Amino acid sequence: MATNEMRIIIKMRNLVLLLLIVFCQTGMAAESSVGVSPQTVTASVGDTFTIDIIVDSAGSEVYGAQYELYFDNTVLNATSQAQGTFLSQDGENTNVPADLINNTLGKIVYGEHKIGQVLGVTGSGVLASITFETVKSGTSALTLSYVMLMDSTTKELAITVSSGTCTVTEPGATPLTMPDYTDISIEDANNMIESNPEVIMLDVSARDEFDAEHITDAIWIQISNASAITELNEYKDWNLIIYSADGAESREACSVLIEHGFENVYNMVGGIAAWRVTFPIFSAPKPIATEPPAPSPSPTPTMATSSHPTPAPSSEDNEDNKLLGFEVLFAIAGIFAALILKRNNEGR
């Protein structure tokens, strides 16, 4: 009798344990993902190839998506970006407020969302396809950054992001040994700073640009100054994150540091222009414009022209007249602007 009761108790315990396992697995929803496919590309100089940006919703409904992709513009040249079928798979219309290629910066931007009060889509598929032509031998990261998925309530979904790499070789020639630095997104850079105390951020932009704004605790360095690089020798075992105004000059700076024996060198793609969208920066206060004093009236005016000088436009006025680049198109799409504003507020 006691043996039978013990068997029943053991079976009940096993059943409870099994139910707990099933409940935990059900409650732990998988994250949606966005990634480059294929993740590894090998090509020869003069070739063209296409990568897909794949979205897997992992059961969540997706109403809109956006990404930035950075590449080495000395190795690759982006020729086109085509809309995929992921968001329109249900036959509903979508809008593409951002579809831009900038080969000068090595930057691609894409944003798409559904239209009207409809539910998002589920499953997996191609959000967009990008075609490149190879320029010279070398290795270029295909780094996804500022990636967002949202549902029909404008809630941002938790996601995992997978970037890619392209290696280009010269037919019949010995492949060049490329600088061993790593391209990282602004999100990866921020995670590295928060999780590792032995990280230094180096700003290699012009000094006046650094004085105007820079990432908090970043150190300005003139990369052409050999003595300045020598002063960094005590940090050779640290992780060095290099950035510039827009991410273009930092690649060259990374190569210089590699040549000087630094091993843990990371290039933050997009530079401070990408960083400021999501994370805080230090900005120097702008001078306050003052009204020029009115001249004393002349007792015997001889001309009808005004004696008051015409004030020159302030630097703030000039800034207002400039296009901000890719962020302007994101602002046009209200559904993405809400998410960007939300991120900025959280970053502060």
Rank of each mutant, 00 (worst) to 15 (best):
T143Q: 13
T167D: 12
L87M: 07
Q83F: 00
G84R: 01
G91A: 13
H113L: 03
F132G: 03
Q81G: 11
A158I: 13
E92H: 12
T94M: 00
V147Q: 01
V118Q: 07
N103F: 07
V135L: 10
A98S: 15
L100F: 12
L157T: 07
P97F: 04
F86N: 06
D99G: 03
G123Y: 04
T131S: 12
G116V: 07
L87S: 04
T85I: 12
E133D: 09
T104N: 15
A128M: 02
S152E: 08
V121M: 03
A158C: 10
L142D: 01
A158Q: 13
V96P: 01
H113D: 11
T143E: 14
G84H: 02
I159R: 01
L105H: 05
G125N: 04
G164F: 04
Q117F: 12
I115D: 11
V135W: 04
V118K: 08
V96C: 04
I130Y: 01
V147A: 04
S163V: 05
E133R: 12
I159F: 04
A141F: 15
S145I: 01
L149T: 03
S163W: 10
L127Y: 01
N102V: 00
V161C: 03
V147I: 10
V96A: 02
I101Y: 02
A128I: 03
S129A: 11
N93F: 08
E156M: 15
S140Y: 04
A98G: 06
E92W: 06
Y146I: 09
L100I: 12
N93V: 09
Q81C: 05
M150V: 09
V126G: 00
G116K: 07
N93G: 11
Q89D: 09
M150Y: 15
Y146C: 07
T143L: 14
T131M: 06
L142F: 11
L119D: 08
G116W: 11
P171H: 06
Q89N: 10
L127S: 00
Q81D: 07
Y146M: 10
S140V: 03
S88G: 07
H113P: 02
L87A: 03
T154P: 09
A82I: 14
F86P: 04
Q89T: 14
H113Q: 06
L105K: 13
K155R: 10
A98M: 13
M150H: 13
L127E: 01
G106N: 04
G116Y: 05
F132C: 05
V109Q: 13
I159T: 15
T85Q: 09
S162V: 09
G123S: 09
Q89V: 13
S124G: 10
A158M: 13
A141R: 05
A141I: 00
S88R: 06
M150I: 10
L144S: 05
V109N: 14
V161D: 04
P97M: 08
Q81M: 14
N95E: 15
G172L: 11
K136R: 12
N103C: 08
P171D: 02
F86T: 08
I159S: 04
A141H: 10
V109K: 01
E133S: 15
T122N: 07
L105W: 00
Y146P: 02
V168S: 03
L127N: 00
